[in-house]
Design a protein around this nucleic acid. Sequence first.
DNA 1: ACTCGGTCCTGAAGGC
DNA 2: TGCCTTCAGGACCGAG
Length: 293
Amino acid sequence: MPELPEVETVRRGLAPHIEGRRITDFTLHRADLRFPFPKDFEKRMRGAQVKSFNRRAKYLLAEMQDKTGTPFTWLSHLGMTGRFMLSLPQAGNLEPGAYAHEVTAQTAQKHIHVEMRFDDGTHLSFADPRRFGFMDCFSGDMSSSSFLAALGPEPLGNDFNEATLLAAARGRKTPVKNFLLDQNVVAGLGNIYVCEALFMAGISPRRQATNLGAKRIARLVRAIRNVLARAIEAGGSTLRDFAHEDGSMGYFQHQFAVYGRAGEACSVPDCSARLKRLVQSGRSSFYCPACQK
DNA sequence: ACTCGGTCCTGAAGGC
DNA sequence: TGCCTTCAGGACCGAG
C-alpha cells in the first residue's frame, strides 16, 4: 500500500524531527523482517547521527554518521504494512505512516519491531504486522546497494520522460500494467497508482507495453506525474491534520478514481460504462472498459 | 533478456 | 456468534 506518495509523506513527516539528531538508544525486537537485519545493525545505529533523511522510489534513505564519524546509509522499506510512529519529547504523537484501509494504530502497536530514542528525547518506532518491510545499511552511493542499483528513474524527476519510457517499452510484450509495476522501468509506482495513471491516460491495462505509441507514452508520463504529485499534496494535508489533532488516524488518500471501484460508474462525464476489475499476474487491475484503450 | 508464478506474512472482510 | 476461506500486495527468486 505505501507507494511513492505515501513514502514521501512519511519522509516529510519524519525529517524535521530526526535530522541532526543522534540516536541514544536503539533496540531490535527480532532478528529479521522480510530479510535479516544487517550484522552489527544495532551497534552501528547506536550513537549514530542522522545527517539527512531522503527518499528513493519507495525506499527511505537516512544518511548517517556513526560514532566514529564514518558515514553510512540506513535504508528502510515499508513493505505493505510498515509504519513509523513518532513520539515527541513534549506534545502528542505523530504517525506519519497512516494510510487508507490498512492496519489500525492498535494493530500496529502489537507489531513494533524496531525502537530508537534520540538525544532530544524523541522516540521513533517501526511497526509492521506482515513483515514485508525491511531495513539495511550500506556504504557508498546508491549503486552500492543491491536494492537500489537497478532502479529506474524517479517518476517526478527529469530522467523520466517520453523518450526514456518509450525506449524502455520497446520490445516489452508484457501488459503495460505489469510493465509499470517493474521498478526498473520507473521507480515508485505500486498497484494503486498504476491503475489510476492508466485510467487518467486512457490506456488499457492489458495493452502490451511495446504497443504504446508516442501519443500514449506522452499521456502516460503526464498521468503518472500528475497522479503522484496530487497524492503527495493530499499526504501533506494529512500531515498537517496529524500535527493539530490528537494523533488519531486520518486517511492518506481517500479518493481513487478506479482503484477498488469495480461495478461503480465511470467518473468521466458522458461515459456510461461501469468500472471493471481484472487480475493480471495475480494482482487486481481496475479500469474503465470504455475510456481505456 | 524477458516473463511468469510462487512465496513470505497477518488482519480484514465476507460467507454460512 | 464464530469459524472458515479468501484476499490484499512489494519485491525477490527460480523456472521456463
